[in-house]
Amino acid sequence: MSILVIAEHDNRTLKGATLNTITAAAAIGADIHVLVAGSGCSAVAEAVSSINGVIRVLLADAPHLDALLAEDLAKLVTQLAGGYSHVLAPATAFGKNFLPRVAALLDVAQISDVVAVESANTFVRPIYAGNALATVSSDDPVKVLSVRATAFEGAVGGGGSAPITPITAPAGFARTRCVSRELATSERPELAGAKVIVSGGRGLGSKENYDAVLEPLADALGAALGASRAAVDAGFAPNDYQVGQTGKIVAPQLYVAVGISGAIQHLAGMKDSKVIVAINKDPEAPIFQVADYGVVGDLFTLVPELVSNLK
């Protein structure tokens, strides 16, 4: 029984969520292959080859896979899938985009956001914004799973030296074209995998305040920045900062919620954090019901005080 994991990367470096997905694969079985598809991505394949537990790396390196469109990746994975009992990808924007296409082409169900592996055909996944956990089983010949990275430790690199097998990708899908990409470059850690997150909500009042209040705190803690839906809707922070049911799911060691009331949809995205700190002026805010430590008061005085205390 072999398992195929699809690596997420940007043609240069491997994204961390792949490592968590490999750990989920290891909970199912031992024979783990990883597909690295892209353009000029051999460095990624090298990196994957050394990850403990990976026994083979498949490298599909072709110019038309540069943008890695769902149409192209799904066709490639579907061709390979016949030889595998399970196909896994991280439940990130990348995995969510292409994986259901694979499942449909294989005529099998997909199990989204797997948080636990009970057996080779039984898995646990959150539903209703994480207000319920469903245990589901599948009798389909190939199990297609997207994996919630925060529910599994990251596989460790360094020990392995899996062989890298080049494979040929099918011709590109001519009717979709990637026109442009605007990716923000940040010195801060990636939100999804960050150890510490400082997250801001409506209470900050403006983009200027969001930046002025939260950036020094994020700097002091070496944290990634996040935001509630209200803050993103109001334009305080970019869209991809949103933590919650329909945004990013995070589980850092420390999550500092500043001026966030704690709607269930937000809690769904961060309640598995190890330690939650809430700073809010409203003592009745639901965020305090999940926070390990709460401070009630004006965030505009408390956060700068916290920054100076951390120095």
């Binding site: 959150p126 956990l133 245990t135 089983s137 330690v275 939650i276 305090f288 999940v290 430590y293």
Partner: peptide
């Protein structure tokens, strides 16, 4: 349906923690 739902349970609930009086206490707790 292709998937069979075997059971649905409540997720483990998080206990509310402690409201600390000031930032110095917060930093010390952390």
């Amino acid at each position: 349906p292709r998937l069979k739902t075997l059971k649905v349970v409540e997720p483990p609930t998080r206990q509310a923690g402690e409201i600390v009086p000031d930032i110095a206490t917060l930093v010390s707790r952390l």
